[in-house]
Nucleic acid binder design. Sequence first.
RNA 1: GGGCGCGUAGCUCAAACGGAUAGAGCAUCGGAUUUCUAAUCCGACGGUUGCAGGUUCGAUUCCUGCCGCGCCUACCA
Length: 669
Amino acid sequence: MYRHLERRLAQHVREFLRHTYDLDLPKIVIEQPPKVEFGEYALPLAFELAKKLRKAPRKIAEEIVNGLGSIPGFEEMELAGAGYINARLRREELAATLVADERPRAEVPSGKILVEHSSINPNKAAHVGHLRNAILGDTFVRMLKFAGREVDVQNYIDNTGVQVADVVVGFLNIEKKSRAEIEQLARQPRFDYYCWDLYARVSQWYAENKQNVQVRQQALHAIEEGNNDSAAVAEVISVAVLRRHLETMDRLDIEYDFLPRESEILHLHFWDAAFAKLKEGGVLSFETEGKNNGCWVMRRAGTSKSEIAEGAEASAEGAEKGEVAEEDQKVIVRSNGTVGYVGKDIAYHLWKFGLLGRDFGYRRFYRYPNGHDCWMSTAVGALEHPHFGNVSEIYNVIDARQAEAQNTVIEALRALGDNEQADHYTHFSYEMVALTPRCAAELGYQLSDEDKSRPYIEVSGRKGFGVKADDLLDRLIASAKNEVDDRHPQLTDAERTTIATQIAVGAVRYFMLKFTKSSVIAFDFKEALSFEGETGPYAQYAVVRAANIFRKGGFDPQEFGRNAADRVSAGDLAKHLNGEAGNEIWELWLASAKTSYLIDQCVATTEPAYLAKHAFLLAQLFNAFYHRHPILSEADEGRKKFLLATVAVVRRELTRVLAVMGISVPAVM
RNA sequence: GGGCGCGUAGCUCAAACGGAUAGAGCAUCGGAUUUCUAAUCCGACGGUUGCAGGUUCGAUUCCUGCCGCGCCUACCA
């Protein structure tokens, strides 16, 4: 409703400007005043118009205020400061729509959206960096669904790369395990932990002897070719580790619809189809000299043609022929004829948009406890399956280090003339999770003096350096469980574990969402394990308190919410929300009204952190309100109903906001 | 060298297209009617927004230069 009113205001102002000044502004800037006393919306419009109209800002603001007339839902406009126009809502009207939970539906664009996230190499346990990816991705999916969009969630599995080959080498060449033994190990509960350690050992083993590196090459080729022992072992390992990743993510309520695998991209010859298109479209060029002699190359994204043309004389000759300077070349097909990962990625993305002309086979792979099926690609699949791909919009949740590769894929689409698709390709970029030196030391890693002086140290799976996702979750659950055990000894152990798990998930999900995407998270257990202050449990606690009021008062909160419209009168709303005394509580109502508005902002900017901040603000306002106003002991019956309606609205909206962040609310805390 | 990003309180971070007194959490210190449970609340302390210019009625935000830091820049994936 809040965003609906904002649009209504913008519409009125736009029409007024057209009539009065014959001005057509494409965008009416609407801000939020620093304090509720100033109103709910602020327009710095007059400053902008001062130059165009050659009048003082204050004078213009005055004209607008006087000329705008009345707008449904709004009080009269007000002039403030040097030329701000503040708009004030009729508080009781917005409050009434909130009580009744009336939400005007915004028009939803049609077309399916594909969100790709997680994409963890299936050769070792998931770590905190993967957690950030999956939580950002899953939260974004929830936001899109909240906004009414249809979404498919994909988790791309690179099961044929060197990382998997390395672990295969570890099992076969270092540990000298048989296939049967490996299959046995793969059934162990935390097989991914075993691989984590082995992977680190393999890296060391390569460093010890140059010849060992050749073993890796052989393994890699064998895996890509298929139909041999190495390939079979690779399949066992990657599938088992992948299953573990799905289990880990399921602990956080993160689910996927489809797992496309690189092995199928290879075996179903996606690349051949893409290669033909790229050659036909003149996107690739074949090098006949220099270091990339014999390769098919593409211009690296971000290197423009004009710069080359204006650049050094040495490249001027090549530039005239439309060639790409060597340092700007991205090799797509190697001189030995094999395709690199960017090539496969281009093929994959052509498939996503339905431009490839080929499809995967599909098979059911994983069934979640709630009955939802996750499908996986396969060479020859089930006859009956849901349809994936062929979408109109995609978001790839991939960290900022992959920006160049992502842009290269987008450029390939453009070069093929698929601009519509390129425009709807969003690299949802975010910064990595690193460890603080203190955290690294805590984990027992030896640090150089140089590393100790850094603000953070990059995680490295290859070195086995990092915090495993399941370890973090285990620690969070244990810590929460201690607290719950103390506070609620009357509950069964199972009940207490459920609550502790909800709190742990709330803590880790909030932690990963509260930083803006562009901020590197320097991970530290102390901060991540905190349940106080700006944390998920703080917000959960606010909802639990709200629910407690109803429980103690003998009401069912949902029931009360549904009937609140009958219980609290318009007169009471007006009486208690207006004036000096009403400001504080109105702030709480207003914040509660902003759920849809915030989610729109988050989707438009691909920035979930705004919603996390909002959840915290809402919880903070509620906690202050809770402290200041005794409700059940309120003598004035009308006021008591009003306060209960306030609690009902906040409880509902905060629960909703937390749900979009994938955070559930415990029964008690 | 080139590309992308960052630099804000002791620490970790906010501040949507440039806007009203730059805000939170943590830490430190001092408080809260023994209540709808304190995983809470209130207060204090804490800032030349890396430096120097420029644009603007107005700059943490935009532009230029400098300083510092990180990531990317493989015929690895």
